[in-house]
Amino acid sequence: MFRSLLLSTVAAATLLAAGPALADTKGMKIALSNNYAGNSWRQAMLKSWEKVTKKAVADGIVAQVDTFTTAKNDVTEQAAQIQNLILQGYNAIVINSASPDALNGAIKQACDAKIIVVSFDGIVKEPCAYRIAVNFKQMGADEVEYLAKAHPEGGNTLEIRGLAGVFVDDEISAGIHEAVAKYPQFKIVGSVHGNWAQEVAQKEVAGILPSLPADVKFVVTQGGDGYGAAQAFKAGNRPTPQIIMGNRQDELQWWKEQKDANKYETMSVSIAPGVSTLAFWVAQMILDGKKVPQDLTVPFLRIDQAGLEDSLKTTEKGGVANTEYTAEDAAKVAGGK
């Protein structure tokens, strides 16, 4: 009797909470648990997070947002940190994790305490958490799709890969090769490892150029290697091919110069560090009572011919093009579009 009474009370309370709950995250607290802050991508990620969440607090969308970074990229420290966040009564934890598996225990405790956990970039495998992962394969395929649309006739293509043996390199390359199988008019005539660095890419491309046919029309890349490739083609007195860029400032700068000089056309694609803000909005949506799939995919930040000037203006020298996401972007991602 007592139990059923309790149950019905709980049910009523849940109904009340779920009914008029739209945009009712005013009183809620969200925390960012971040495992590492030691490179420019992570610094940009934290900066974006701070900018967007500060505004969200000022606008009264959520009550409080805090950032916690572990001193070293350390699993046990981050696990203890998550437990502290549970104790402090946060409603949601957004996490870039040090390990996909070893935080499962702490994540499960957070879920059991009715806390929403959203992981991004460094995702966690615990089933109760939400994941915003990067589809690197799609990124590779997108490059070829773009070329196939712009140049249906196809042609000889050079592939610049990343660091050998790293999962990201394998994935992007697999995406490129799958797409090339779909558009056989594109022929990969050579492949070098540019290690995502301009100097390495330049050296490696310069090395393979003499063995390539004279009409290399396209270069597919992984980011951080497009500028180096362009320099190598120039030094080898070859006509400049259409090089896919990776959102680095030097690449965009070179593209702009070429565009002004001879209407050079290409596109640029990579992951924006501002993906942390996407995770923030997804967490806010879930707190708001909206239904969100457990596994989401990060949208790529793609720069096209028309948007080049704007992107270049907002990108710091030596940095990566960034964007902050909005609640609408998060709704779009969660909708599977």
Partner: peptide, 17 residues
């Protein structure tokens, strides 16, 4: 005991210990 808490292993799980 650490493994019992985390549920999964990692070679660098206890570097700070």
């Amino acid at each position: 005991s650490l493994l019992g808490l985390t549920g999964a292993g990692d070679a660098h799980i206890a570097d700070r210990y």
